[in-house]
Simulated scan of single mutants.
Amino acid sequence: MGRMADVLAFTKGHGTENDFVLVPDLDGTLGLSPARAAFLADRRAGIGGDGVIRVVPTAHADEDDVRAQAEQARWFMDYRNADGSAAEMCGNGTRVFAAYLRREGLESADEFVIATRAGAKRVRADGDGWAVELGPWRLTDPAASERDGVDALVHLGEGDPYSAVSVDLGNPHTVVALPEEVDLESVDLSRPPVVRPEPPHGTNVEVVRPIGPGHIAMRVHERGVGETRSCGTGACAAAVATSFWAGSLDTGSTWTVDVAGGRLTVRLLADHGVELAGPAVLVADGTLPLATLPA
Rank of each mutant, 00 (worst) to 15 (best):
V182Q: 15
R124C: 11
D42W: 08
L189P: 05
S186Y: 12
V150Q: 13
G105D: 10
D110E: 13
T242N: 00
W245V: 01
L8Q: 08
A61N: 00
R44L: 07
E133G: 15
G202V: 12
L189D: 00
P179K: 00
D160N: 05
P136D: 07
V274K: 02
L249R: 04
A41M: 08
A295H: 14
M77E: 06
A98M: 09
A98T: 07
M218Q: 07
G170N: 01
R54D: 01
G93C: 11
V23P: 05
W75F: 10
L290D: 02
R103A: 15
D83L: 14
G278T: 03
L169Y: 03
S33W: 06
P179V: 03
G252T: 11
T174V: 14
V187N: 06
V266H: 03
E71L: 01
G286A: 07
L276I: 01
A246F: 06
V283A: 14
M1V: 14
A246H: 10
A86M: 13
Q69W: 02
D6L: 09
A45I: 12
P192N: 08
V175I: 13
D168K: 02
G93N: 10
W130E: 12
A118S: 13
L293E: 06
A73C: 14
C90V: 13
V187W: 07
T16N: 10
L8E: 02
P193H: 13
A115T: 12
H272V: 00
A37N: 12
D78V: 10
A37C: 13
L26V: 10
G91D: 04
L8M: 13
G232P: 00
V259C: 04
D151E: 08
A152Q: 11
R138Y: 01
C236Q: 07
R209C: 04
T254D: 04
A238N: 11
V266Y: 05
G226R: 10
V21S: 04
E104A: 14
M89G: 03
G157S: 08
G49C: 14
L101D: 10
W75Q: 07
G273S: 11
T287D: 11
W255T: 07
W130N: 04
T254Y: 03
A277C: 12
H155S: 15
H173K: 08
W137H: 11
V240Y: 08
V274W: 01
G224W: 11
Q69N: 00
A177C: 12
D110H: 01
L293S: 07
P24T: 00
A239S: 13
L169R: 03
R196H: 12
P192H: 08
G127W: 09
F97G: 02
W75M: 08
E185K: 05
E227R: 05
D62I: 02
V225L: 04
D65H: 15
Y79I: 15
S253T: 13
R80P: 01
R209I: 04
T228I: 08
L290Y: 03
A143Q: 14
V154H: 07
L184C: 07
R67T: 00
T265E: 14
R223A: 13
P210C: 12
F10S: 02
W255P: 08
H201F: 13
V113N: 06
P34H: 11
N92H: 08
D148S: 15
T228Y: 05
G273Y: 11
I53R: 05
E133H: 15
L169E: 05
D64P: 06
D126M: 00
S190N: 14
V56G: 09
G157V: 11
